[in-house]
Design a protein around this nucleic acid. Sequence first.
DNA 1: GCGGATCAC
DNA 2: TATGGTGATCCGC
Length: 952
Amino acid sequence: MTVAMTAAPQRFRVQGWDPVLIIVSLQALHYLVLSLVLPALVTIFSSSDLLQYEGGGTSIALAMDWRVFTGSTVSGIAASRKLGAGLVSLESARSATRGWTAAAAAAAGELDAASLSHGVVRVLEYDAFRGWAVALGWVIASMADIFFLYHIVRRPTHILDFSLTLVFVHLILTIYYSSSFPTSFFFWFVVGASSVVQIVLAEQLCVKREMRDGFSLGDVTPHLGVEMTPRFPDLELGQATGHGSKQSQSGDGTAQTCLRKRAWTGEEPKASLLKRMAGPSDLKAGVGGKKTADEVQRIIFEASKGSKYFNDQQRRDKELEIKVNRIKGILASKELTAKGDEEQKVDAILEELAEKRELSRVIALIDADAFYAACHELEDPSLKGTAFGVGGGMLTTASYEARKYGCRSAMPLFIAKKLCPHIKSLKMEPDLYVAASKKIMVTLEKYGPIAPASLDEAYVDLTDYCANQGVTPTEAISRLRADVQETTGLTVSAGVSPNKTLSKIAADINKPDGQFVIDSTAEACQAFIKGARLRKCYGIGRVTETLLNGLGLETVNDIYKYRKRLYLVRDHLGSSGVFRWLLSLYLGMGSNRVVRAKRGDRKTYGVEKTFTPTDNRDALDDILRKVAKSLAKDLARSEFSGRTITLSIKHDTYERVTRAFTPGKNVWIRSYEDICRLGLHLLRKEMDDRAAAIRRGEKVKGGKGPRIKARLLGLRMSNLRDDRWVKATPSKLPDMQLSDSDSDMLHESDNSDEGEGDGWEASKRQLEQLAKDAEVDPLAGDDDWDDSHGGASGSGTGRWMVVDDDDEDDVVLSGKTRSLVSRTSSLPLARPTTARRTSCSASSGSTSTSAKHSAPSSSAARQHSPTDSRASPTASTDSRPAMKRKTESTASSKPVSEFTCPVCQKTLVGSETAMSGHVAQHFEMPAKKSEKKAPTSSVTRKGAGKGAKKKR
DNA sequence: GCGGATCAC
DNA sequence: TATGGTGATCCGC
Ligand SMILES: Nc1ccn([C@H]2C[C@H](O)[C@@H](COP(=O)(O)OP(=O)(O)OP(=O)(O)O)O2)c(=O)n1
């Protein structure tokens, strides 16, 4: 024992990390503590005369035999009431063969002989004391373990593992020692409870230390030691080729996965961090082998080390680690009480889900290869085959040649240059991409309904094309791809399957200029997705993947393999829907709805700008004004106004905060002046609030400096209203707009506010009152299935995407993105489903007034969808128009040019813009008083949201 | 409604 | 030396 203790620390320093040594040391220390504490406790709690029976208080059995716990606490106490039970309890003890148990046997003999109830009680009392003493000893030792874990294990991630291993080893030892399996509830309770407490406390301490000390690379302490996650051969998707037909035009067989030796040894940062720094890239780096994955990781790491960005990544990494541990803990505790029928239950759900499988459609996802880069090659053919990236500072994409060196999307140029010294970078030219995108989409439309998911991606429903032309999906997609290449000069890759989920994954398989078709059979779908790594699935990003990894899952098939685990933690997976979503993913199911997004589907407009960090107020104001101007321009061009403006700040530390403000329910923001005024106000308020928080000693983001030092400022408008729609609709609500032009108001209003501390509130209330008018009603949309991606609305390069009809060049895409991850704990995921459900049902009826206005199209848009192909009834597809609202808003009276300021009560005549400008003035004011009240009184609280959405 | 977090491209 | 811009959803207050 002693040897181990002293030897351990040394070996750590010299050799790094040795799990076996660590567990041996912990075990030894644990027993050492027990051996010191138990005799003392037993001596204290036991009467001396009885102590003799077991030969003193120092028997090794005290530590090693689980029966010391039981002898009598729980069962014994019960036994004191009933003789029979007491006999049973002692009976078991009698079967023991060595150590102190002989004493118990003797006691039992004594009982048998005397059969005096007095005697029985006495013996049991004695045992009870001892049981408690031993339990207490165990608890003390467990708490001492916290200290050892903290100093020896160090990494929060490993606490759980080592702690459980320790208990497990003890279990084995005690079973061996006692020649019996622990059947005492008390024993399990004490051991289990102290382990839980031990794990929680130790992890918290370790996490706290890491947050405090950081994670220094030069440090040679064991916790930095290696935690290499082996790079799995990228099984991609198993050999699904049996079912699907494969047809790759490009010659390179990306398939081979060579085992690479470590490019560097010695101190290595945590794998997760390396991965984070390397980005989502698959790192199968050079097909051409110019750089190995390890080299790429190393270079990225070396270049990043020490930067503020790097530090921020470390911080995130730690937080993620905490999350992983938390869910692991939840799983561990749930497993203790698992019933055993979990897998059966899951299987039932799977069966239920599988019934809704829909295989009638042929859905394709077309994705252009290295899109931006390809667009530039089109303009300048000499670029072909050269290594270049698009974007200054940060690469938005890289040419395939550059990718051989490890260059990727979202990689800073200076790192790309280290990887590939001769890489060239081109300036972004959005117009080029938009034009190319339009061309692609036009071509795609010849093959069926399409749903653009970004500038370079779109889903196409080939069902009808195949039927009409009498061709197989494979033939159809081959034609389509050839067609696109011919008409646009761009190469695209495609995936074809019965649903969007699978097609999306399939499109990646034969990536550059290739395609992958999955047969329309349940078997083919299932077989295909089984081998896919979780990260390949739309909606599963870095965080979600890590959390699932924490539960032991690596591939989609593991969802089934570990369905019991998922089931046990299902309530901690964000929302209950996540669990089912994963199951349907495993089944290879998904939405097959292909509908184009409409103009009204856009939900926000925003502009943000990164600059070299500064804490100069004037400079920040200046930047914000420019941002405001840009945003105003976008809004004007697209004819949208918004009710809510959100300021976004990225501190020098990369920590971000957002601050929003909604003047009123019917107050529309659009002009540069309003945006600017409100934006500056939000910025100033944040500066003041932050400074105040610092003075109060509270923690704030962005470092300790009293002034905000930012590297990015952004403004975003949400709760949009389509001004075109407004224009076309004669009467409507009282429409106020904070507006520009009249700057005159500025001065006069300035003084009026001082008095009213709660001008803010007042204004809010009055405006809300004023707004109460149009009637909206509850929605009708009921159950709609999920639609993770494409359906309508989405992610992507929002700003330029071309929306449906009007050939405007505004952009809106389709697809939606839910993100997993609930903030507080657990797994992310949100269920893909329903985005609109929340927005319609959850939000108050009042807002819908505006919602209605803003998105007249969205409801109208849908009715058209799946009608033609009757075959998609309840399918797992969404199919359904969610809500069908019809009542347009009612009208309200009220001319528009005369207002009474809700704040100062003045009556103003003139443009509404003047009005808004005036009102806005009040906002600039004293944040103080309004501050207090705002939180409590403002707004109503509605509980509906959650319930509605959960159910389903 | 707000703010943080996640994800996608 | 140095790490982007745009948009969407979800959750818990
Ligand atoms: N973080 C990112 C990722 C992508 N894009 C842009 C540039 C890409 O060209 C385009 C399409 O993205 P993809 O993910 O489809 O990647 P590419 O088309 O560039 O390459 P490939 O699809 O061949 O892997 O979106 C971006 O601006 N920022």
